[in-house]
Design a protein around this nucleic acid. Structure first.
Length: 569
RNA sequence: CGGGAAGUGGCUCAGCCUGGUAGAGCACCUGCUUCGGGAGCAGGGGGUCGCAGGUUCAAAUCCUGUCUUCCCGACCA
């Protein structure tokens, strides 16, 4: 490709609304342009990168026998009603009506359509196993699109589904996908973590997320420094030192705490009896419309996903100030569960058996001391509800955990029969008995892979593409286009390299050398071949790998350039 | 949805407080010089100041509403 005719509008300055590096660089490098919030146009360079990523995914999928489909993005309501998700997906789903007034939607994912097909077409255990996939645009009306291409409303996803007759088949399919994902992300040059995950709206038993460690991500991962345990903090567990409490010293007693409404305030005012780990934090949550009290140790944070998991609630939200006052007679900051018998109480397991605690008295300006959980809050159901934090102990090996921000680039699920049961997708087994098809679901966010590579590989000058997803492999710069010999040599090398099978971008623009260097660094093609007057007089050109300082001066012949390009130290 | 910020040539921003001729840098066009790390000089084109209403002799500027975008919290690839 000749850059003189390439549409790659590079920018010196970052648009003011871009904050994460991948967003800034994709826009500055002329890879993408925003069309609306969370909706981007892929320009030629960006699209080439996307196609590279897709090709890597295809290769791995095809290798394990997965078959590529292309399903509609526009779905009739019926297939979503069949699994009940027309309701469940709520405002996140883009909905529309056709001319006949029929409800339609834009696909957020394709469990429904694939399951619909499986239901209609798969009859016998002899038809199984099957692994189907596609690379398709998904539409989600995200409440908050952000970070460029990382969280958007329209994006490309590779989604694969496995169909098996039994658990063992599912386990095998899941394992195949897991391995394929490792291959995909390795080829993409991404350092990733495989992490235990919360299954969320997908349902299903086991799931793992593929995470790339970057501050641009939105998830938190807890990973053991000593063993390979890693989990999303939505589900991560840890061990902490058990608390040693004094013996019970009498019934709960009210004491005045005017103006003390946070854990810190109270701990500061009464360090003797109300240090944060001696307080019971009382949260009010509304789960599927029903108010609950949620109790945690004062210095612990709730993991909402765990609360959801523990209760099976579909819809969950913190209580509003007014309804809390109505239910408990006090405002947040003075709430407690002692004596509350009209609301269900859930408590984190770290509170089990605790004695001599302090908690709100359900009267503004007062707290209770001498609270023993078992005696004074007897109707409590315990569950793991707290969010793990840095340096706590690994549940497997006792090593210390580190907690960091990460970006989810892939997610694999064992769905089981959640969808096949919903639509009645069964096959006959060898005994002629109807059995539900057992499914797995496996997704990769294609744009996220692209962005993650940039988050991991860039410097102050621009992107440093991994070889596998670079839009071109070699960037030939003709530094002086007005010089016949330079121009001729650049053309000659360009043609030669193309003939050798390389993907080459030739900067033949009528621009100054400095501009070409800057753009080359920004765009980030792995190998740069600079053809300039100075070197050419000595019969040589310069080759530099993006991201490395070393410039190699080689003979200006196709052979030596090729040799240098292939030699990758 | 809750909280915060911003909308002024293609991009980054100033001007607004204290109403009166719409500005700068970059980008673009022409010419000359320059020519290996985002050139210099000279000339030039391009803006309903997000939109609507209001106040005023007069609105980018003040008031109201509205739309859009970004950032921070609840969802997910």
């Amino acid at each position: 490709m000749r850059q003189s005719i390439l549409f790659a509008p590079t920018l010196k300055e970052a648009p003011h609304d871009a904050v994460v590096p991948s967003h800034v660089l994709l826009v500055r490098g002329g890879f993408i342009r925003q069309i609306a919030a969370g909706i981007y146009a892929m320009l030629p360079l960006g699209w080439r990168v996307i196609r590279k990523v897709e090709a890597i995914i295809r290769r791995e999928m095809d290798e394990l026998g997965a078959q590529e489909f292309h399903l509609p993005a526009l779905h009739p309501r019926e297939v979503w009603d069949a699994t009940d998700r027309w309701e469940v997906m709520g405002d996140n789903m883009f909905r529309l009506k056709d001319r006949g007034g029929r409800d339609m939607c834009l696909g957020m994912t394709h469990e429904e359509v694939f399951t619909h097909l499986a239901n209609n077409e798969l009859r016998s255990y002899r038809d199984l196993p099957q692994v189907w996939y596609q690379i398709q645009t998904k539409f989600r009306d995200e409440p908050r699109p952000k970070s460029g291409v990382l969280r958007v409303r329209e994006f490309i996803m590779k989604d694969a589904y496995s169909f098996d007759i039994d658990r063992e088949g599912l386990d095998a399919a899941y394992e195949h996908q897991r391995k394929a994902y490792c291959g995909i992300f390795e080829r993409c040059g991404l350092k990733y973590y495989i992490v235990e995950a919360h299954s969320g709206a997908m349902g299903g038993s086991e799931s793992a997320e593929f995470m790339v460690r970057t501050d641009a991500g939105e998830d938190m991962v807890a990973a053991c420094r000593s063993c390979d345990y890693a989990a999303n903090t939505e589900t991560a567990r840890s061990r902490i030192e058990p608390a040693s409490d004094p013996e019970e010293a009498g019934a709960p007693e009210r004491f005045p705490t005017p103006g003390l409404v946070t854990i810190e305030d109270l701990a500061g005012a009464h360090p003797d009896k109300a240090s944060a780990d001696r307080q019971i934090k009382t949260l009010v949550y509304v789960l599927d419309g029903k108010m609950h009290l949620v109790l945690l140790r004062g210095d612990h944070e709730l993991a909402e996903s765990k609360l959801q998991g523990a209760t099976g609630a579909k819809d969950l939200r913190p209580g509003h100030a007014e309804e809390i006052r109505e239910a408990l007679g006090a405002d947040p900051g003075s709430l407690g569960a002692v004596g509350v018998d009209h609301l269900p109480v859930l408590a984190d397991t770290e509170l089990e058996g605790r004695r001599e605690m302090v908690t709100g008295a359900n009267e503004d300006g007062f707290h209770l001391e001498h609270v023993s959980v078992k005696r004074d809050i007897p109707r409590t159901r315990f569950a793991d509800l707290r969010t793990v934090t840095e340096n706590e102990q690994c549940v497997h090996c006792g090593g210390s955990l580190e907690v960091f921000r990460a970006l989810e680039v892939g997610h694999i699920f064992k769905l089981g029969t959640r969808y096949s049961d919903a639509v009645g997708a069964t096959v006959l087994d060898a005994a002629g008995k109807e059995e539900p098809i057992i499914m797995g679901s496996y997704g990769i966010g294609v744009e996220r892979v692209m962005a993650a590579a940039i988050e991991l590989h860039h410097d102050g000058d621009g992107i440093i593409w991994p070889d596998s997803m670079a839009p071109y492999q070699i960037h030939v710069l003709a530094l002086q286009t007005n010089d016949e010999s330079v121009r001729g040599k650049a053309e000659e090398l360009y043609e030669g390299l193309v003939a050798e099978g390389y993907e080459v971008l030739l900067d033949d623009r009528d621009e100054r050398a400095g501009v070409k260097f800057k753009d080359a660094d920004l765009i980030g093609i792995p190998v740069r071949v600079a053809v300039g007057k100075r070197r050419l007089q000595e019969g040589s050109v310069e080759i530099r790998r993006r991201g490395e300082d070393a410039v190699r001066v080689v003979d200006a012949s196709l052979q030596s350039v090729c040799a240098e390009v292939v030699a990758r130290p």
